[in-house]
Design a protein around this nucleic acid. Structure first.
Length: 939
RNA sequence: GCCCGAGUGGCGGAAUGGCAGACGCGACGGACUCAAAAUCCGUUGUCCGAAAGGGCGUGUGGGUUCGAAUCCCACCUCGGGCACCA
């Protein structure tokens, strides 16, 4: 860091002043001692980490979790200590308030970042990953986080991914029962087929060959191989999930173009959980913003399917507005719709073929740009509107997407802006079926746009359905859906934007699939005793990447090259045979889908988590509650990726009876970002923020003017401050306090290095109130605390408790500073309240608190002490000062007894000189006395 | 366009219906020092005023209320998410 820190001790600074060097000395000693004594080891109810002598089942639990980091070569950035400090302070506070606390840290070490770093350095990812983990562990240690080190996991550890593979097989060997809306073991489906209580979808189960049966079952599995459109990213050399593709059709990582291609890939049937993933959000303590993002991503819409008769048979559409069916004046099919060929008349054939070719050449993401003008082609055929028998033309257009609904729509131009635009562009009829409430009338030739909303229907009746008296969309929708169902022309339907999860990647650094293929290319699960399927060692770990724009390239998995590994002999129940291994690896998200459960029972070799331990740490507190981690802190960037996938896996494991909680993360808190000033030169290039000088109200870099903006702290903006440097200058306790004092945890905050000194001075003053800076001995005031000091103390206790309960670390710190400022004015700390002060400080600045605790004569760690409890009697004074307002402006103050009644307070207010002179003889119309608060006189 | 969230001193922020600006940075004045740094003490929303005191003040305009930074309506600005999803 280039910023000046506090002075290093020189001859004239006292030897025991709390400054950077002393802080580091204290911190190193206490970190060593915590390690040596296993201070933060938390016992389990049962299993390898059970310790009956230390486990107190009568205490409430607190499972506190951070989103675990990728061990990238760059190490921690300031965003990590921000979230980690918050959870550590909360964890320590929970220990002080009598909770059993589960708090640890792991590493999400598979995936692209680790692999790319390995490719850059030419070293094996296992080597670089372990180096990076060691490096980050050292950085974390400096922060004084109270992790149980025995519970740490890395997703790349075979002892960990053995269970990731096991969970994959649980999912593979399950099906979703649409009746119970739950996952069930595939054996139970076989039993139902055998018993005839459920019919197979592809034929008569009893008459099927073994191969046909296998195919039938594979189509039910929650993890399945599918030849379907996927996102192929040549620049990365792998396919990626929908959630990893940005709105402009590029890869989330690397920003390469992504192409839709049909490929044979692993999918997970997350869509079967769409309703539960939405509905169960109601049971979670998450922000509305994140819930909205998840709902939005799942994209549930209720409506109806409607069947139209056409020369090529039935065309089914999905609509959210079946009530507008009388106004359907044409239909539009996606260019890829399977009926387009047979619907197209010879006269239209060349035009349709040209349009389809053009549409196919464009990628999906260009097509989804709503600023484009509408394009489309008439097929030459007509379909019949089931409500009124009208023949309406069938068009194809690229604004209809094959991937949503049925890939076909009924177009109601009077009630849908897109259809309206299309009708105007091609001169198609627009018939009003509602009388708009804005007075524009029903002559659609004069309309500037479609009308959407509740309004009386017109021209909306046939022999058996009459909406013309209906005034609400909801009622019209309900009655039309009923009519459609009754007449066999459709039914109420729910559609989702959510697609099944593409689960395979053509990379090296991931979990291998515990799957082999038989001679007929059927996927076969490996038995438990063959787990883990170890990731084979190789020096050819770099995936084959391609020209980022080469859409027709094909993925080549690095594991394909390992012939010796690929072919394996095994007995899967029908004798020893030769099988080919699956050469894909699982996506980055697999390991993070369940890591919180492994923290609960990290060394269990019998199961991924013992049910007793899971129920203790994650089980619902009350029947009907979701259960799950008590507090999960992390960035908002995982709103629809990790958080959706992890919820899905957890629900499958719940359905199968492996866990007692039906949600993994009961309470989620999203921390803000650490921002910092960044500077751009006239070319728009970022310059080193630490070499920029402020001059004449502007900013200058190497003599040239630069402009300032604020952005997420990091390498790309050249404005990153390293946590290590701050620890080296001021100590970790100062860094912790600064990060938390900057503002509320959920707000983004700009880093200002010059502000760090503020909380450092606070610690220095607090230290000085307890310790003689020359001798290092305690210097406590002998006389006991007076009533005024006790009142300040108890107000502080109550306030800090309330703040820490609600993760308001910024105001908790401010209250402690206030209290310390009071002690400073007192000339020091009375001996009888020093313990309380130090215990309150300990969750926030644990190292200096431990040091002070020891100086106060205690031999044990402060970690498991009891947080002081405020005495209610100390929170009220004998007298209270009332501000007296006249017409809402404060004009005077009166002091009355705390228990004075309203009349007494009013009398005192009226008797006040300033009030009388402000009233200037006027008679009050009304006087409001708010007990304990204030008086307002209305003159 | 739609859905969230936020606008308060020079700066980060506090106050969620009851004394706006807690706490911190910075700035200014003072102590210590040969001096500087560090440290300590004091002042610090703004305008008028020598002071006492007073006016104004939480993005803008309106409303509810004895009383609004806080609640309601409309608008403006910024940040985030989604976006031809039928």
């Amino acid at each position: 860091m280039s910023e000046p820190g506090p002075a290093s001790p020189t001859t004239d600074t006292p030897p025991h002043r709390y400054a950077g060097a002393l802080a580091q000395d204290i911190e190193a000693r206490w970190q060593d001692r915590w390690d040596a004594q296993g201070t933060f080891a938390t016992p389990n109810p049962t299993g390898p980490l059970a310790d009956p002598a230390r486990f107190d089942a009568s205490k409430p639990r607190a499972f506190i979790l951070d989103m675990f980091p990728y061990p990238s070569g760059a190490g921690l950035h300031m965003g990590h200590p921000l979230g980690f400090t918050a959870t550590d302070m909360y964890a320590r506070y929970q220990r002080l308030t009598g909770h059993n606390v589960l708090y640890t840290m792991g590493f999400d070490a598979f995936g692209l970042p680790a692999e790319q770093y390995a490719v850059q350095t030419g070293q094996h990812p296992a080597v670089t990953t372990n180096q990076n983990i060691a490096n980050i562990r050292a950085q974390l240690r400096r922060l004084g986080l109270s992790h149980d080190p025995r519970r740490s996991v890395s997703t790349t550890d075979p002892q960990y991914y053995r269970w990731t593979q096991w969970i994959f097989l649980q999912i593979f060997n399950s099906w979703f029962d649409p009746d119970t809306k739950k996952a069930r073991p595939i054996d139970q489906l076989v039993a139902e087929f055998d018993a005839g209580t459920r019919s197979a979808t592809t034929g008569d189960w009893a008459a099927m060959s073994p191969a046909q049966r296998r195919e039938e079952l594979d189509a039910w599995r929650l993890a399945y191989v599918s030849d379907a459109p996927v996102n192929w990213c040549p620049g990365l050399g792998t396919v990626v999930a929908n959630e990893e593709v940005t709105a402009d059709g590029r890869s989330d990582r690397g920003n390469f173009p992504v192409f839709k291609r049909n490929m044979r890939q692993w999918m997970m049937r997350i869509t079967t959980y769409a309703d539960r993933l939405i509905d169960d959000l109601d049971t979670l303590d998450w922000t509305d913003a994140i819930k909205a993002m998840q709902r939005n991503w799942i994209g549930r819409s209720e409506g109806a399917t409607v069947h139209f008769d056409s020369p090529s048979g039935r065309i089914t559409v999905f609509t959210t507005r079946p009530d507008t069916l009388f106004g359907a004046t044409f239909m539009v099919l996606a260019p890829e719709h399977p009926l387009v060929d047979s619907l197209t008349t010879p006269a239209q054939a060349s035009e349709v073929a040209a349009y389809r070719t053009k549409a196919a050449a464009e990628d999906d993401f260009q097509r989804q740009n709503d600023t484009r003008d509408k394009t489309g082609v008439f097929t030459g055929s007509f379909a019949t509107n089931p409500l009124n028998g009208e023949e309406i033309p069938v068009w194809i257009a690229d604004y209809v997407l094959m991937g949503y609904g049925t890939g076909a729509i009924m177009a109601v131009p009077c009630g849908d802006q897109r259809d309206f635009d299309f009708a105007r562009a091609f001169g198609l009829p627009i018939v009003a079926i509602q009388e708009p409430t804005d007075g524009r009338g029903t002559d659609t030739r004069t309309w500037a746009d479609a009308f959407v909303g509740d309004a009386p229907y017109v021209h909306s009746a046939n022999d058996s359905l009459d909406l013309n008296a209906v005034t609400s969309v909801a009622e019209g929708t309900r009655r039309t859906s009923e009519w459609l169902a009754a007449h066999g022309h459709g039914e109420a339907t729910v559609t989702y934007k959510l697609r099944d999860w593409l689960f395979s990647r053509q990379r090296y650094w991931g979990e291998p699939f515990p799957i082999v293929y038989d001679a007929d290319e059927n996927p076969r699960a490996l038995p438990d005793e063959m787990l883990p399927v170890l990731l084979p060692d190789t020096d050819q770990f770099s995936p084959r990447t391609f020209d980022p724009d080469d859409a027709m390239s094909n993925p080549e998995s690095p594991l394909d090259r390992l012939e010796d590994w690929v072919w394996v002999e095994a007995d899967l129940g029908d004798g020893v045979r030769r099988y080919r291994r699956d050469t894909n690896v699982m996506p980055q998200w697999a390991g993070s889908c369940w890591y919180e459960m492994r923290y609960v029972d990290p060394t269990n070799e019998q199961c991924f988590v013992d049910p007793i331990n899971e129920r203790y740490w994650m089980g619902p507190a009350q029947p009907g509650e979701s259960g799950g981690v008590d507090l999960y802190v992390g960035g908002v960037e995982h709103a629809v990726l990790h958080l959706l996938y992890a919820r899905f896996w957890h629900k499958v494991l719940f359905d199968l009876g492996h866990v007692s909680s039906f949600e993994p993360f009961h309470r989620l808190f999203n921390q803000g970002y650490v921002l910092a000033a960044a500077y751009q030169d006239e070319r728009g290039m970022y310059v080193d923020a630490f070499e920029v000088e402020q001059r004449d109200g502007g900013y200058v870099f190497e003599g040239r003017p630069v402009i300032r903006e604020y952005g997420k702290m990091g390498k790309s903006l050249k404005n990153a401050v390293s946590p290590d440097d701050v620890c080296a200058t001021y100590g970790a306790d100062t860094l912790r306090l600064y990060l938390m004092s900057m503002g509320p945890l959920d707000a983004s905050r700009p880093w200002e290095s010059k502000d760090v000194i503020g909380v450092h001075r606070f610690l220095q003053r607090l230290w000085r109130n307890l310790v003689d800076e020359d001798t290092g001995e305690t210097r406590l005031l002998a006389e006991s605390a007076g009533i005024e000091t006790l009142r300040v103390l108890h107000r502080t206790i109550a306030g800090v408790r309330d703040d820490l309960d609600h993760l308001r670390f910024n105001t908790a710190i401010a209250k402690l500073i206030e209290f310390n400022n009071h002690l400073t004015k007192l000339g020091g700390c009375p001996a009888d309240i020093a313990d309380a002060l130090v215990i309150m400080l300990s969750p926030l600045a644990p190292h200096v608190a431990e040091e002070l605790w020891a100086k106060l004569g205690h031999t044990d760690t402060v970690t498991y002490e009891t947080f002081p409890v405020a005495d209610p009697a100390m929170l009220v004074a004998d007298t209270v000062e009332y501000p007296v307002q006249i017409n809402g402006k404060v004009r005077g103050r009166v002091t009355v007894a705390t228990d004075a009644d309203a009349d007494t307070v009013q009398a005192a207010a009226m008797a006040d000189d300033k009030v009388q002179s402000a009233l200037a003889g006027a008679t009050p119309k009304k006087i409001i006395v708010v007990p304990g608060r204030m008086v307002n006189i209305v003159a």
